[in-house]
Design a protein around this nucleic acid. Structure first.
Lengths: 257, 257
DNA sequence: GGTCAACCTTTGTCCTGACATACGTCGCCC
DNA sequence: GGGCGACGTATGTCAGGACAAAGGTTGACC
């Protein structure tokens, strides 16, 4: 292969030519444009600071209407990848950011980071809901809920101690599935679409029991996270209370509107 | 079979009648609709689970076009307040969530919670940037940056120890302003529009010095947060490294798409 | 009496077209 | 030579219409 001399700018002389659309696809045109643009941005095919072809011409060249182009671009603007300026144009944001997911799962995070997560199921049972769980899952106090306690490790070292509560009967949970897959993965596979989550992060000192399970010393600083996740319609799906060793950090990219 | 839990709540008899629009206002029509709908939702004038008037009729009754109604509703759907279902309608999400801001400032958080934040400026100077700060602010290592260290308290009790680095000359900072206002507030007032931030949260044990300033014991669990904020165009504006006492928690509402 | 197809409702997608408004630049005028 | 207004450019807002697809309901048929 020839060394890449053309790699430097002259970015997208012809942006439209690099986008391909399939009108017969079930995926909407604006989404096709958005995902391709996003790919070009993360690959720096569209480098930070570069300007996109203007909306009118882009629409023209792609054979689609301006509103369609606008919704595609608007989606990326909302996610902080692009900036629009009236009278100027649309540019790729300068910073290279985390681009971390809005709603993350520890299992996926570890996988994505190239580490190999393993899970030990410590408990999988039904118990009466205490006040906190009952409030979170919108059931009566004392009503039965599924409780799940897991120890998550990576490369054989403990990372997190996770306690989750779920409505009974939401999905059949088996320990063997939980040891091979993340909870959110199983939920998705069962057709549960998680859409919103309330999350709270804090710090706490490890109790003796917690320290033993996580391989820390009693009193060590731990990261605590509680999360209640809701589906499409706002029904509570899962309430979790997790403890992470302090080596682990939560990273997110926030966008304000 | 007994009535399902999805019992219909009586919807606003006439949603359109409760919305008022001002065509002469500089604020866009879709935004006028969105903020009024949002207000009705948080006030439970539109209770969780209730259905909105369908888009076509709503547009008709308001004397605006359907796309305008759709962008207003779409905004609220993106924020997790509403759910759309084809063939069914648009409903208010069932859960009452935190609705916390995407990008929060500790000062504003405390104010909003009805507490009275006070700030002591410990340091305000220029220093050469170390490697971490230089990378975050996109300046050369050793280049001068503004460094700012503050102790934030509420009701006289220390809450956080905050170290921030900013590009020199971004805005004139005076200790007296910093003791009366939050940093983000001052940035906004200086015309800096913060739009994106990369944030990472973890836990750590307090050093002796940190413990002394925060009124904790050495080794106490602290919440650590580092954040780099960017403006409109992705230029780094601020890099902060904060320590919070474990009584403080970060709460957010996450929405996935 | 139960099943399933037809139909209605409502959102999803996309189009064309128009005017408003902010930003940058260029050239005129002082 | 410098300030400033006119103009071009690109996004922002909005209208109105058309058809597609999905969910729910209803009614016919077996």
């Amino acid at each position: 292969m020839v060394a890449s001399p053309s790699a430097r700018v002259a970015p997208a002389d012809d942006l439209a030519a690099e986008l391909s659309l399939d009108r017969d696809s079930p995926v909407p045109l604006h989404q096709q444009v958005a995902v391709q643009l996003e790919a070009m941005i993360v690959a720096e095919r569209l480098p930070p600071g570069s300007r996109l072809t203007n909306e009118v011409e882009l629409a023209d060249r792609l054979g689609i209407s301006r509103p369609t182009v606008r919704t595609a671009i608007g989606y990326l603007v909302d996610r902080g990848l692009l900036v629009r300026k009236r009278g100027v144009g649309t540019q790729v944001v300068r910073a290279q950011l985390n681009r971390s997911l809005e709603l993350t799962s520890l299992h996926d995070d570890l996988l994505h980071a190239g580490r190999r997560p393993t899970t030990t199921v410590l408990q999988l049972a039904e118990t009466p809901a205490d006040a906190e769980v009952a409030a979170a899952l919108a059931v009566a106090p004392g009503a039965p809920v599924t409780v799940l306690r897991r120890l998550r490790s990576a490369e054989g070292r403990p990372v997190a101690l996770m306690t989750n509560h779920l409505p009974v009967g939401l999905l059949p949970l088996r320990a063997e599935d939980l040891e091979a897959h993340g909870l959110y993965e199983l939920l998705r596979a069962a057709g549960v679409r998680i859409r919103i989550a309330d999350q709270s992060v804090g710090a706490a000192a490890a109790t003796a029991a917690q320290a033993r399970q996580l391989g820390e010393r009693a009193g060590a600083a731990l990261l605590t996270m509680t999360r209640t996740a809701y589906d499409d319609e706002g029904r509570p799906v899962e309430h979790g209370s997790h403890l992470y060793r302090s080596a682990y950090r939560f990273s997110t990219t926030l966008v304000s509107r």
